[in-house]
Design a protein around this nucleic acid. Structure first.
Lengths: 221, 221, 221, 221
DNA sequence: AATGAATGAGCGTTCATTCAT
DNA sequence: TATGAATGAACGCTCATTCAT
């Protein structure tokens, strides 16, 4: 029934079990992610997963005894795949720090326009307000994703202290996440993402370069 | 500091004041908003609204024949209240354009740290991916909220074209929304919001001032 | 499907509600008792109650939000009906104390041979081992049922102390309950109940008459 | 005091000792009995047996293809063990018949206060109402357990006919079973069991001695 | 012998909704 | 207006059982 959205990510492997088991395990997680992205968390029920995956309801709770475990496994798998991809892409050798910063911005803002990222993270944001596990996993992911940004900032502006670099990275990261709301997948200003990208590059590069140590600590007079 | 846009919920009242039986209408929406903010969209059921409001389930579907109507009425009312407050607060006479921009930034970023705004908008973002009505109302709200920002930009940098000003306002607005994810209510970097505010002020003011016409249209060389 | 076993007892009335509601309420409890007696506690499910009563599953949890509440209401109703009947029958004016004791024994042992009493109490005994509520209600019922027995003993043998009378009543009451196991409804020695009754009368009357104060406190030498 | 009929569960072993893989068989029944006694028949599921025994669900239905077979094997084993112990303990040579009767009463009433006997037999009583197999096995057990009692009665009162002796044994046996309800394990009058024991001894000895042939056949005048 | 995979029925419970009162 | 009664579908989950490995 649902659009067969099958993300291109490697899921966590289960430990042990027969080969046949791994198939069902993956089918379930793929179906679950499909539902989450296509129809939101409300649609994430054992019965709808059964429909989409072609398995039976009881079979799903054979792999995941409770819904909580299913959700955790799903988030773990998807967040891990983001982490893996981020780690890979962000540490690739670039020429100048400016160029690497620019590449990073483009990478993230492009990712933001995908259906998967737009929908998945917006669900996570909402869930994280009422679910400690989601909150923690999300925090962990963002921390790791900010790390390469912090490294580049350290190169571009060595005068800044560690907390200052961190806060700057936070500001830039947050700014980019905010683009999801207006220029994410099928958002009203999706078409302006290229312009927003240029503004971001211009603004962030200058911000990092010209920020003076201590400057962000004093209240603006 | 920490000006709250919507200190109480008078806004929920329908025009014309208290007609007979209108108290029920208000009670329901108040309870619904409370549930949405405190426990998320999952908790927004007729039964729980009945519990919280002290009314009976049947009574709620007397006012709102379907859940969809209730949700729409709720979002309508709350979004309207934000709109009203935005319109009032953002047009208040300020000294210089810079000062007015700064005031606006502080106003929005402070509002973002409130429980109500953090939780309510994150629910809206998630819902807007699968519900056209939410999508439209949210778009409308943000358009009106960006208007005063566009006006200030026009004053600060008259050389920019209308679409350029709009895109700049979009960028700034999106950046600030993104702060919700990291420095919103009970978010991991809530305590750094003051620093983020200073960075935002510094960065946005310079960005608006120094942006050249046509600059954001060309790809970065 | 089940044999339409409809006990002749007055159920507790609900407070408030429409007249139509009382019907459904009684239908459910009657069906529940029917199932408990005919097929045991295992058969006491919302779905089987729905089948037997002709109502819908959801309707049953309208009256009884949880199964625990249903079970409690059922036990309350049935135990209350026993209490009412006991209180009525046991306090009726009899000629001599011996005659009243004999009447009581006959009353109880006859009741024990009914399907309702045999099956219902055996379920309760089993449940009471793992359910505090059942334990408490059962204890309460038996305490009240022992009271008239204690009164007769006091008349027949005024020399006994209060705890001695109580323990004697306990012994006699327990003895009679034990008959359920062998001479209850459809039990292997059901047909010998008349003989057991005569033994009981003979034995208990003599036991009460001839018991000496302090005798049951000393270990047999 | 407090002689326990079945101190450990060796009895559960099938004849022929430990064949290969028999450990599983024993583990399962041990776990099943544990569950039945600790949490009642409701807890007797393959899953919970698997948890308790450390085996896998599939493994349990390898030994016992259906739950019915498992339950029957369990009851069979446990009832057999009671039978064995009864036969052994009740035929041990005593001095006088009175003394042997007294010993028997003490033996049984002490056993009744154990958790295992109180819980196990109350489950059996309830099950026997809806399960012919349980009914039959229980009947058989009680018949054999009554035999030594009948023998003692024959010695004490040779004037009684065989059916009269049998009925007297039935009455005494039933009386003692009834003590389970009030003075069994964790029952409200558990602490009065010593007094009840003395009453039982006094009452039963006199009853057996003084019962006249034909007396229990005529209605009391 | 032992276990993982899979099934289908049933469990208590919540849900939005309809309708008579 | 307001509420109790009633419905039917779906929820997460447990169950005994079957089967391939």
């Amino acid at each position: 029934m649902a659009t067969q959205f099958v993300p291109d990510m490697k899921f966590i492997l289960r430990e042990g079990g027969y080969a046949r088991g791994q198939e069902g395990y993956e089918l379930i997680l793929r179906a679950a992610l499909d539902l989450l992205i296509e129809h939101g968390y409300r649609a994430l029920s054992f019965r709808r997963i059964a429909e989409v995956s072609g398995l039976k309801v009881g079979h799903i709770s054979y792999y995941f005894p409770t819904k909580e475990e299913l959700v955790r496994a799903l988030l773990d798998a998807v967040i891990n795949s983001y982490q893996t991809e981020f780690d890979r892409l962000m540490h690739q050798p670039g020429s100048t720090p400016e160029q690497r910063l620019e590449d990073l911005i483009v990478l993230i803002l492009d990712d933001i326009t995908t259906k998967k990222t737009t929908h998945f993270f917006m669900e996570l944001w909402a869930l994280s307000n009422h679910d400690q596990f989601v909150f923690d996993r999300l925090h962990e992911l963002y921390c790791r994703a900010r790390q390469p940004l912090g490294d580049i900032i350290a190169e571009l502006n060595p005068a800044l202290s560690e907390p200052e670099r961190e806060t700057l990275a936070l500001f830039i990261s947050a700014s980019m996440e905010g683009m999801t709301v207006f220029a994410g997948y099928q958002k009203p200003f999706r078409s302006r993402m290229p312009m927003l990208e240029r503004i971001a590059i211009k603004s962030f590069v200058r911000l990092v370069r010209e920020m003076k140590a201590g400057e962000m600590l004093e209240p603006a007079e």
